[in-house]
Design a protein around this nucleic acid. Structure first.
Lengths: 333, 333
DNA sequence: CTGTTAGCGCTTTCAT
DNA sequence: ATGAAAGCGCTAACAG
């Protein structure tokens, strides 16, 4: 691997000059620039980003923490963030926290140790305290899908409670009164918020919430199947099912079909997230749009603006509103 | 940010000693180790990975190139690779090439510039020549899902031709004679190999391949819908449909249902990949297992063994065999 | 077992 | 416009 030193020798100039043409900031005469560029080309020179980072204290990379590397939701998030950042010459270093406090912590420390210029975190397990500390530290941090008190300027969230409300309200408006609910793991804020919204909608409509009408899942497809089975047993009168995310809705749909239910004729289903595949299910899933794409984009723009002084093309906003996406799984009773 | 120098001062020892306790390789007396550890703790010291890398010429990170950051296939791959590597204390730096020669090239150069200790590439657009050069260079490289001549030891592939053959053979064995085919983009080797397998199975059964029986898609769900529409128009007699991947199969299923077909009573469908969600479709998709999980695992183990001298727990193999996963979308005629 | 001392490859003043 | 030189924070001989 050729180094800057060899380039400078081949070009007959100093290290500093080579560095200048690489970075294009200081002025260099046409002639020397040409000499240097030729030397770089003929040596196949490739700057060592590690050395550049150490010397400049800039890595041009931002760390992204997600919970998992698979799944539509995180796929969308990673894709979006990468796209915006790459367009602006920045790189993304992705790590997974697996919704485990220790592993999230380690992942964040890893990103810090790589001296990322900023952090975009979808952190679910780590404490508020830790996040606050992080923000107070010397590295810019934004948090996605989690509201931390006193950190509003760094948080990008969707109103999950409202989303849960809208989902159930949609079912109620379609005439349903016995509504099953498959929630996410309730230790997660988004899951419990969505459930709160569900209860609010019920209450508003004068429907009493029954414990047996609900099943706590883990946001995975298999939990949808389990939930479906559970509800058939303990709350057989339900005519509509609201699920706290699309994966579980998909699992529930499969289980329902296997149990012989026609959807939506005999059972209505509403999801949450509006993940890409939801429109490819059959019937197409009625769901709540979770603007994860917009949030990821916004987080990336925030970083560009605050860290790299690149003006965001859109105004920075922190609260995103969910909305009902009407498709084919919610039928009128 | 505390540096190693401050730690050494606080502990009253030299830089070298601090470095030693960090790396735990050379022997250090219990007492000094304790002093150093205390100093590190009280200063909240965190090693600068950038500086470590520069000095040691080791980054403990391996670069992973995928085509996209979303989608089940790449999600599986990323997850698997990360898991194996992380278990062994190595980190993964993920980049996306978007099946574009220039972008793949840039992504690889980025990984090289970050001085990854090794590269795991799912490269689709870059030339064989370039890959050979890379392997001959000074950085260990493995290639996933692509066979490059003279590079067999660095390639991990599934037999796509055989997979295509098996898919169509399964349909034939179920009594189908008029079989539609939705292929991937044929400039991709895996797509054209699968199509070759399809044709071989047809030929073997004495069925003539008709141009109108096939639609070239792009591996995305929407292409499944388009393909379905196309075939209904130009090859209406088909009773079975083989798709070159599960996403397109899913799209085709949706389109078929909308067109009023019962699956598999009126139309059988076979996919390819056995991506996670394929078992959550309704009916559950009959498909060909593409051992992407196994390949990713193997690639990671190869790297551990060849780069980090960590012995692989399983023998390294390069060719993976596809197999039929019988579920519910293939019916007997 | 511990300290001294060169670098790793680059950026960035400060001169010229 | 260009060069000299001092680091960035750490590792790795080499001494002792």
């Amino acid at each position: 691997m050729a180094t800057i030193y060899q380039v400078s020798e081949a070009a007959g100039v100093s290290l500093a000059t080579v560095s200048r043409v690489m970075n294009g900031n200081a002025r260099v005469s046409e002639r020397t620039r040409k000499k240097v560029e030729d030397a770089m080309a003929s040596l196949g020179y490739q700057p060592n980003a590690i050395a550049q980072s150490l010397a400049s204290n800039r890595t041009n990379s931002v760390g992204l923490l997600v919970s998992e590397l698979h799944g539509s939701y995180f796929g969308d998030l990673m894709s979006t963030v990468e796209q915006v950042l790459k367009q602006n010459g920045k790189h993304v270093i992705i790590t997974a926290g697996h919704v485990d406090e220790k592993r999230e912590h380690e992942a964040i420390e890893f990103l810090k140790s790589r001296r990322c210029d900023a952090l975009i975190l979808h952190a679910e397990a780590v404490s508020d305290e830790y996040l606050k500390q992080l923000v107070d530290g010397n590295i810019p941090v934004v948090v996605i899908n989690r509201k931390v008190d006193d950190l509003n300027d760094n948080c990008f969230v969707v109103d999950n409670e409202q989303g849960g409300y809208l989902a159930t309200q949609a079912a109620i408006n379609a005439g349903h009164k016995n509504i099953g609910y498959i929630s996410g793991p309730l230790f997660k804020k988004d899951a419990s918020d969505r459930l709160s919204g569900h209860k609010r909608a019920l209450e508003e409509a004068g429907i009493k919430f029954e414990e047996t009408s609900m099943f706590e899942g883990d946001f995975h497809e298999s939990a949808g199947q389990e939930g479906m089975l559970h509800l058939q047993k303990h709350y057989p009168k339900f005519t509509a099912l609201v699920c706290a995310n699309d994966e579980m809705a998909s699992g529930a749909m499969t289980a329902a079909r296997e149990a012989g239910f026609d959807i939506p004729e005999q059972l209505s289903i509403v999801g949450f997230d509006n993940v890409l595949f939801s429109r490819y299910l059959y019937p197409k899933l009625t769901t709540i749009n979770n603007p994860i794409h917009a949030m990821g984009e916004m987080a990336a723009y925030w970083v560009l603006q605050h860290v790299y002084n690149i003006k965001s093309p859109i105004p920075i906003e922190h609260l995103f509103v969910p909305e009902v996406i009407n498709r084919d799984t919610l039928g009128n009773l």
